[in-house]
Design a protein around this nucleic acid. Sequence first.
DNA 1: GGTATAACGATTTTT
DNA 2: TCGTTATACC
Length: 707
Amino acid sequence: MSDLDLLDSAPVADESKILEGLNDSQKEAVSAPLCNALIIAGAGTGKTRVLVSRIVYLISHYRVKARNILAVTFTNKAAKEMRERIGMYLNANDTHHLWANTFHSTCLRLLRAYATQAGLTPGFLILDTDGQNSLVKRIMQDLQIDIKEIKPSEFASRISSLKEKGIRADDFHKRINYIKNTNKKSSDTAEKLALVYTAYERICNQENSVDFAEILLRTVELLRTNTAIREIQNERFREILVDEFQDTNSIQYELLTLLAGKDSHVMVVGDDDQSIYSWRGADYTNMKKFLNTFPDVHQYLLSLNYRSTQNILDMANTLIEKNFERVMLKNLKGNNGTGSQVSIFKCANNRVEELSVAKEIQSLKDQGVKLSDIAVLYRNNYLSFGFEQALTKAKIPYVIYGGQKFFDRAEIQSALAYLKILVNKKDDTALLRIINLPARKIGPKVVESLRNISNEHSCSIIEAIEYLHEYVSSSEASKELKTLYSKVSAFYNLYIDLISKKETMRLHEFVHHMLTVTGLYTFYSEKDAKEGKSEEDNSRYKNLGVLVSNVKEFEASVEQGEVSVDSENEVESEDLLILYLTNITLVSGGEINENGSDEAMPFECVNLMTIHASKGLEFKYVFICGFESDILPSSRKSSSGDSSLEEERRLAYVGITRAKEQLVISYAKSRTMFGKNELKGASSFLYDIVGSYENSDNKPYKIVAKI
DNA sequence: GGTATAACGATTTTT
DNA sequence: TCGTTATACC
């Protein structure tokens, strides 16, 4: 070991301090030997704390080097939180070397480092869900597949889930042929899908872009086939830790098996009772699989809950007991006393429900409760509307998590499309979005001709225009080509101007320049004016300004070294613009405020969100609303088999276990939905819970009628 | 190239 | 019911 290595792995935190304050089972997990381990951590049992402590323990006790540790999470939020918490124990050098990232950014880092070996051109961009949908739509139209019969987004998501199962277009074709040969009937839709999938793969390759699923699949294929690269990673990643393991899908599972070498150890933390993303490919049986496939897995169970009162936990325990497909049975025990009873609001209708909740929040507020300690949770986004109205009327400020994301807005996507073609001229998807935006007389006919040229020369549309420019100015071109060029020459000049200015200006100034010369500023401010939008309320013009601020902020954070541009030579340094574009598709994604930053709301607000979005969070006061049949469990699921019903039950379980001190569960007996008045009853889950306490004098809940 | 009208369809959501 | 979107039409 060199001195430098010793410095790198020098203990940074007092070992006894790491274990201080942990309970016995947490301590056991944190100080586990270097081994494969499965930690089953019930809701609120200090899962993140254990993970963070384990990482620090690995470094200080086992002298594992930070660069040999990989921690993987699902969301950027979780990754950020983990990095921050680890940062409190480690020195800056260790923190820098440690990989604590989402599955996607981990893979992306590998792909950037080994782009060529993975069959990509360096500088490739990420195709987000919108881009994916529009590409699929374009393909379906080209193949004359009726997009009214089958929604492009349907095919797009099916392609993604095929990729998440590791199935390529080729494999899918083989499958269909196999079915044909044996059963003689294959579905018409599947055959169409296969055609679209093939074309989709081809175009993504041509355009040098990867979608989210591709990021994972490419990495897996790279590691599967390239032994040399795999061995480097095996050597590097000695200790791998995975958060929310119940949410892994099959490609992520395979990734773990490939990243871990024979001397590596994998520690996974999860809770099968909180698996609520199976519709997205998550498979909590990976926990069982892990136990059976990885050698010598040590098991740890965390069931002491630090979050909620026992009444709340009893509700949760009673509910989840009805699930049969559990990997490991656990009963949450708390250390916060019994607490007050859970209130079940039995409301005459949804209006009453909304007003009752608002009234209750008002009285909490009057008692001096911080609004940010209150959350209103619901199964479906459309349920938020009524609560928004009721809260507005009561003058109670709130924030809604989710909803339309800033970067999904049309004007932002258009601006980004301009930026994308500047770093990746192969990106036809981006180009087609803006070639005639704002209108510059490039209609479908011109586009058609351009696409013909690009097909002939197997190049992108921009390259076709470049080719046209060369050809027309230097030789005796045909009249048709000359007129064609005259129609796109203005756009070509714009493109050339942007390409050259990009190098000479600071990035945010350049983006501002781009918005000016492309005419996007004018286009959108005129559009705003036409629709009578005031300067203030979410005008599209203003949003473009917010984009510039966001770029500026990003620029500053890169300069301060906050965004890791990996210094190790395996990751090459990149164009700042590529870095920005990658960052917003993969890392930011969320809502940003008018200053262009993603800092939290400065003032006190009640939190409104879906139960899905609440996972991993906790609040002192929680209202779970619309606890009704056909809503929770959702009408689409209750009829379609046990496992989806069980997932809905887990969802309710997640909701309940968010509450620390007080929980209100509310339902309406009648509800106006889509203009129609429907009679719903209380959720079957509520009957299950109440039924369990039928003869008990010691009920964890009380029912309150609201009329 | 923009506007009016009809038709549709409406879980959950991160990357 | 309400918002989005495709198509027809000017």
